[in-house]
Design a protein around this nucleic acid. Structure first.
Lengths: 188, 188
DNA sequence: TGCTTAAGTAAACGGCGGTTTACTTATCTG
DNA sequence: CAGATAAGTAAACCGCCGTTTACTTAAGCA
C-alpha cells in the first residue's frame, strides 16, 4: 500500500506531493466526507498529522488537491476543429498521472464548506476561462452545455457508477460524447 | 421554522411524512454528509430521536427519502412525441410539492454507504425502467445519455450552483435541453 | 374518570475522526 | 563529531453528531 515502504529518505516537498496525489485519488473516488485523513496518509505512507502541518487541515488539502488537478492547458491547448475528439480523449484516457478535476469537484458537493471551495475554483478556473474561449453571445450557454455533459459523464463513471459506464466506454456512447462536444464549438 | 408550532396533535403517520419531506429538502440542498439529523427534525418540528424510531437511522431515512421521490410516472407517463418538452417541464417546474430525485441521489454520492443506496435505487427505479421504455439495441446508450444530461443539469442547479444556472433557466439553455432529450427518442 | 398504550421529548452516551501535543529520528553544517 | 534544526511519528484530545435510554404527556377505551 504505502508508497515509501523501502524509501525512508526525508524530503518535505516530495512528501507533500505524495499526500496531494493520494488526496486526489481518495477524494475523487470516495468523496470528500467519506475520505478520511487517515485513509489518505496511509496511501502516502505518512503520519496523519502531516496533513495539518503541511496543508492546514483537511479542507485546505481538498482545495489544494482540486487546484493541482486544474490544468489551464485543459482549455488553452484546444484546437477548435478537434474539440470533441480531444476532450473525450482527455476524459477517457487519463494522461499519465494527471487526474480529472471534475470527479474531485463533485466529491465535494455534499459538504457545504467543501462545496464553496469547489464552486469558487470551478467558476474561476473552468467555467469562466471556457466561456472566454468560446466567446460570442452564446458563450455562457455553451460553457453550461460543456459543464453539463462532462459532469454528467463523470458522475456515472466515478461517483455513482452504473454498469453502462463500467470498463471501457461504449463506442456508441463515446461517439455521442464527441459529437456533443464538437457541436458546442460548431454553433449547433 | 417549525411546521407544527401551533399544531400539537399527535399523529405518527403525519409526523413520519413531515420528517420525510424535511429530509428530502435538506438532503437535496445540503448533501447527505452535511445534512444533520437535528437539521431535518428541526424543520419538521420534532425530536431527533424520532428519526431512529420511525426510520431506523439516518441512512434508512435517506433511502426512504429517495424512494419517496422516485415516481414511476416520471417514466411511464411519457409521450414520445413530446418527450423533450415534458421532461424539461418536469425538471424546471417542480410540480406541486413533489421533489426531484436526482439532487437527492447526487447528494449521497460522497458517502460510501449512501452511495450504495443511491446506486441501487437509481439502477432499479430509473435506469432500467428507462432502458426498457426506450427499447431496442441502443436502449442502454440512450438511457446513459438521458442520465448524463439530466444529472449534469441538476449538478449545477442544485449541487454546485453556477451563476449561469441561477434563477429561471436561460431560454437558450432550456431549448437545448429540450432538443437534447427529444433527440434521444428520435434516434438521432 | 382512571388505566393503558402510543407519541413525543430531554438529556446523556459513545465513537468516529480531524487536530494538537510532546516526542523521536534523520539530515545538514561547521 | 557535536549541535541545531527540520522531518516525521505516536498517542492523546476533543468536539460533533447519530443514537439510546429513561422519562413525560397526550389520546383511546372501558
Amino acid at each position: 500500500m504505502s508508497v515509501r515502504d523501502e524509501d525512508k529518505m526525508r524530503d518535505a516537498e516530495r512528501t507533500k506531493a505524495e499526500i496531494l496525489a493520494a488526496a486526489q485519488q481518495v477524494f475523487s473516488t470516495r468523496g470528500y466526507a467519506d475520505a478520511k485523513v487517515r485513509d489518505i496518509t496511509a496511501i502516502a505512507g505518512v503520519n496523519p498529522a502531516l496533513v495539518s502541518r503541511y496543508f492546514g487541515g483537511k479542507l485546505k488539502l481538498f482545495a489544494a488537491a482540486l487546484d493541482a488537478a486544474l490544468d489551464a492547458r485543459l482549455i488553452t491547448d484546444l484546437d477548435r476543429n478537434l474539440f470533441g475528439e480531444t476532450i473525450v480523449a482527455r476524459f477517457t484516457e487519463p494522461r499519465g498521472d494527471r487526474v480529472n478535476p471534475l470527479p474531485i469537484m463533485l466529491s465535494g458537493s455534499s459538504d457545504s464548506e467543501a462545496r464553496e471551495v469547489a464552486r469558487g475554483l470551478l467558476r474561476d478556473r473552468v467555467f469562466e476561462p471556457l466561456e472566454a474561449w468560446f466567446g460570442g453571445e452564446a458563450a455562457s450557454v455553451k460553457a453550461a452545455r460543456f459543464m453539463i455533459v462532462s459532469t454528467g459523464f463523470f458522475a456515472y463513471r466515478d461517483q455513482l457508477p452504473l454498469d453502462a459506464f463500467a470498463g471501457a466506454v461504449d463506442p456508441d456512447l463515446r461517439q455521442w460524447l464527441v459529437s456533443e462536444f464538437q457541436a458546442i464549438v460548431d454553433n449547433e
